Simulated scan of single mutants.
Amino acid sequence: MNEATPRFRKVLTLLGQLNYTWTNTESLLIHLIAGLARVDMETATIIFLTLNTSRARVDLVERLAKTSRTDEAVRRDVLGVTRRMMSEAKLRNKYNHCIYSFDDTGENVSTLLMRISDSGDRLKYGKVDAIDDAEIDNITGSINRLIETNRDIWAIAKRYGFPL
């Protein structure tokens, strides 16, 4: 295939947007860390960057929100956005940890999952999933939900006077 087809470009654009939206939203956890831990932005940024996975960063935010010194309304709002964010993590992780396959027309796109599943006396690996119209809608929906979560994190930070 010498030039990208419209579908090929659409899939690549959506996956780039999913990754960008996730990363941008994850970076807002810095504001939640700063507010919940009652530290300045520089300290919160160092804490954020020291933790090297999204799961660790979200775990920290959730644990800070669950402390006794955190107001119930703050706890509820923070846990709501972190849970919504993590509900999108499975899809994001799938597309960041797979190999992509396109047929010679560029129209039929699929993923090859790079994970080993050990079941009984057999190994399974290389699960193939098509990126069909339904999956494109699923990716688009995830992007939109992450955008909404992003806006909600900003609103929480402003509502509760967290460092911006």
Rank of each mutant, 00 (worst) to 15 (best):
M1D: 13
E3Y: 14
E3G: 10
T5C: 09
T5A: 13
V11Q: 04
V11D: 02
L12S: 11
L12K: 14
G16H: 06
N19Q: 15
Y20C: 07
Y20H: 12
Y20E: 07
T21D: 01
W22F: 09
E26F: 05
E26A: 05
I30H: 00
I30M: 00
L32G: 02
G35T: 06
A37Q: 05
R38Y: 07
V39K: 02
M41L: 09
E42M: 14
T43R: 14
T43M: 13
A44M: 02
F48C: 04
T50C: 08
L51F: 10
L51E: 03
T53D: 07
R55K: 14
V58P: 01
R63E: 08
L64C: 06
A65K: 01
S68V: 15
S68W: 14
S68R: 14
S68H: 13
R69Q: 12
R69G: 09
R69F: 13
D71V: 10
R75G: 05
R75H: 08
R76C: 14
D77T: 11
L79A: 02
T82S: 07
R83W: 14
S87Q: 15
E88P: 03
A89C: 09
A89N: 10
K90F: 14
L91S: 07
N93V: 08
N93E: 10
K94D: 15
H97L: 05
S101I: 09
F102K: 02
T105L: 08
V109K: 00
V109S: 00
T111E: 03
T111Q: 05
I116W: 06
S119T: 10
S119Q: 11
G120H: 01
G120N: 04
D121T: 08
D121I: 00
K124Q: 12
V128Y: 04
D129I: 08
I131H: 00
I136Q: 04
I136H: 04
D137R: 15
N138T: 14
I139T: 01
T140M: 02
G141A: 13
S142P: 05
E148H: 11
D152C: 11
W154P: 02
W154K: 09
I156Y: 02
A157L: 04
K158F: 14
